[in-house]
Amino acid sequence: MIIVLNGELTDVTEETTEELRQNRFPDADTVIVDGEPVTTDTGLEEYSRVYICSMPEGLTGAITRRCTEGVASALGKATVGIAGAGGLGSNIATYLARSGVGRIIIADFDRVEPSNLNRQNYGLQHLGLFKVDAISEVISSINPNIEVITHAVRIDRDNVAEIFKGCNVICEAFDVASEKTKLVEAVSSLLPGVPMVCGSGMAGIGDTDTMNVRRLSDTLYLCGDGISEAWEEGIMAPRVAVCAGMMANKVIQLISKKA
C-alpha cells in the first residue's frame, strides 16, 4: 500500500508499524502515526502518515539537540508552574515544552473560545475544551515525554500551595491586575523562596522595545512594558508573545542558574 513515510509517498509491503520499524529503522525508539505517537504495534492504512524517529539520542534528545550547552539536563529535571493558560500561559507552556522542561503544572478555570485564538496558542480543534486540557494536547504533540499536570480550577490562596508544590519556578500568567497582585502575595508568603516571573503590560501594537525584564528581587521578576492595559488598547499576539518569550527565557535562566 501507499503510505507517507517520513514525509515521502512510499509503496510498502509491510502492514504494521512494527514490521516497518524492524525492517527499515531497527534502532528507532519512536513511531508517530497521523500525528500521534504509538506505543504498540499498529496496523497501517492507505495513506497513513508515518514518521519513524531513528535518532540515536531518542525523541527528547533530538528535540533538545539544539539546546544551549549545559542547559538541557537542568531543564529536563525541572518542574515549572504556570498560573493561567491564556495569552501568556499557553505560549509560555509551549516555549518551555519546546525547550525540554521535564514537568509543567498548569492551572486555569477557563475554556478555549474563538476570541482566544488571536493570541493564545490554541487551534480550532481545541474550542470548548478546558484550556489546561488543550495545552496538554499541544505539549504532547510537541514532546509526549513531558509530564503535564493540569488543574481546571480558579487559583486562590487556599489551593495555590498545593497546586504548585514542588515547582522550581512559578509563572504569573493571569489577566486581571488585582489577581496578579494577589498571586504575588500568596506565592511569596506560602511558597517562600520559589522564584516567580510575572507579566504586566503587553497590550496594543506599540513598539516592543518598550518591554523589558525587571528584577525586583532574587525571587521576583517582571516582564512587559508595565503600562499598556489590555482593555484600553486591545491585545495582540506579537506583543503577548514577546512578553511570554521574556518570561520563558527568564524561567530557563533561573533553572540553569544563569539568571
Binding site: L88, D175, C198, S200, M202, L216, G226, S228, E229, A230
Partner: peptide
C-alpha cells in the same frame, strides 16, 4: 522599595 503597579492583560 520596589513597587509594581500591575496592569491588566495576559
Amino acid at each position: 522599595l520596589e513597587i509594581v503597579s500591575f496592569v491588566g492583560g495576559g
